[in-house]
């Protein structure tokens, strides 16, 4: 259940932003989660629901956007979406990739009341 730690980190960032920028409310927060990140969507939603209860973020909506795992084959240069961390290049069969996306875990958007 490391989703609880991740959720706490999200809430700490929200509290910091809210205080820094003087937002009166945060309506929603969008978190981009890479396809290969070890985050279970349902577990993060549950952690968010539990940890925000009776806090200033109780009504804040958590939106999770899954980012596909895009990679470039280091051998033939083919850009492609990978299904998992051990899938081979669809063009040349190599396992050597540079990951372009799919490992991120970031807050990409907030809807706030200023």
């Amino acid at each position: 259940m490391h989703e609880v730690s991740i959720c706490k980190a999200i809430l700490d960032l929200l509290a910091k932003k809210k205080a820094e920028k003087n937002y009166s409310k945060i309506y929603s927060v969008t978190v981009e989660v890479g396809e290969f990140q070890l985050v279970v969507k349902e577990a993060l939603s549950l952690a968010f629901e539990v940890l925000t209860k009776e806090t200033e973020f109780e009504k804040t909506k958590l939106v999770q956007k899954i980012v596909p795992a895009l990679a470039v084959c280091k051998d033939c240069g083919e850009k492609q979406e990978r299904q998992n961390l051990y899938s081979e290049c669809k063009k040349c069969g190599s396992f050597s990739f540079e990951m372009l996306s799919g490992m991120e875990l970031k807050i990409s958007k907030m809807e706030v009341e200023t």
Binding site: I6, A9, K17, I107, K109, M110, E111, V112, E113, T114
Partner: peptide, 16 residues
């Protein structure tokens, strides 16, 4: 209403 959409690139585990 003064709703605003704020775009961010903040890493969730930035603190760690």
């Amino acid at each position: 209403h003064h709703h605003e959409e704020i775009l961010s690139e903040e890493k969730v585990l930035d603190f760690n």
